[in-house]
């Protein structure tokens, strides 16, 4: 099993520990992640699509052509990149006249979009391609912890461009993807709400973005969540770096460790917190996770 690994911006350029951890975990699962040489920003669906939709389509299509040349499907750890690449791919497959326009632009750089690959969020690789039983069979130790799962928006919406069969008002597949590790997902107020970062709000109105983040952290704390588990590198940044920003701006401290899904899976597969790069998180994650692992082993 192999995939063209689409990096985007946040993982390689701000949280490279997620990139390194995901490579280790996928390698251990026997899944090859191939570099997409010369890929760019997806470009981001909230910002660049808001600025210039045609350029967004063309650059998204260019990124897809790199995987088409490699002859493999794309996977990504970022729900924003996923949204762009999945929706550009769907639109260009469905709409002949749009594809013609985009290919006219791509012809200037010697490329052509053909529509020969699929785009998959990395959770789809675990859920649909590997399957829960296969992933669960790789678990070597239990992680007994109460975790607040953050689905994020673009992993599940817009539903016309998504594969999940769960309702976007009450999805349960993320729970299914952590329960076999011994993790207890806890429901919390506004569980399905946005992290606040999307749509150019983090860059344009950081105070509004942080209000979202703070409210989510508050309700996670109310139910005693020990970990925040997410599936998007941009949400990851917003919750991890966001906790630092909230402390600076509002003097509030939550100290909830922010863990990306592959990092959590890696821990359950026996990798150490350091091997999963938790020491690069801004909110201390190594010692609370070690305490959880020690407690779980008893």
């Amino acid at each position: 099993m192999e995939y063209a690994f689409f990096l985007g911006c946040i993982a390689p350029n701000r949280y490279p520990n997620l990139e390194a951890a995901t490579h280790k975990v996928m390698n251990a699962l026997g899944v090859k992640l191939l570099d997409m040489e010369g890929a760019s920003c997806c470009p981001a669906p909230g910002v660049l699509r808001s600025f210039h939709r045609e350029l967004w389509l063309a650059v998204g299509a260019r990124n897809i052509t790199i995987a088409e040349e490699m002859g493999v499907d794309i996977t990504t750890m970022c729900s924003g990149c996923y949204a762009t690449l999945k929706e550009v791919n769907d639109l260009l497959k469905e709409r002949e006249e749009l594809r013609k326009k985009v290919n006219e632009a791509l012809s200037k750089i010697g490329r052509e979009y053909k529509g020969t690959v699929e785009v998959k969020h990395i959770l789809e690789v675990f859920y649909f391609d590997l399957g829960i039983d296969e992933v669960a069979s790789q678990v070597k130790r239990k992680i007994s912890a109460k975790a607040a799962l953050h689905y994020g928006c673009h992993l599940i919406k817009p539903t016309v461009h998504r594969r999940w069969t769960d309702s976007c008002e009450d999805p349960r597949f993320f729970e299914a993807l952590v329960e076999f590790m011994g993790v207890t997902p806890v429901d919390y107020r506004d569980k399905l709400m946005c992290c606040g970062a999307g749509g150019g709000v983090r860059s344009g109105s950081p105070e509004v973005a942080l209000t979202y983040t703070m409210n989510k952290l508050e309700s996670m704390r109310e139910v005693g969540a020990e970990l925040l588990v997410n599936a998007c590198q941009f949400c990851h940044l917003q919750f991890d770096l966001g906790q630092v920003e909230i402390k600076e701006r509002y003097g509030k401290e939550y100290n909830i460790p922010v863990i990306f899904y592959t990092q959590l899976l890696g821990l359950a597969m026996g990798f150490s917190p350091e091997e999963m790069g938790l020491q690069y998180n801004r909110v201390e994650a190594v010692s609370p996770v070690k305490a959880i692992l020690e407690r779980s082993a008893e």
Partner: peptide
């Protein structure tokens, strides 16, 4: 430190790829 390439294998490492993105931005007048 993480054992990754200093720059990711994106437009950051491939100048010709960056030229392609610039050409598209210019094509649309962006």
């Amino acid at each position: 430190e993480l054992g990754l390439s200093e720059k990711p294998p994106t437009t950051h490492s491939f100048p010709k790829a960056l030229e392609e993105v610039k050409a598209l931005a210019s094509y649309f007048g962006f």
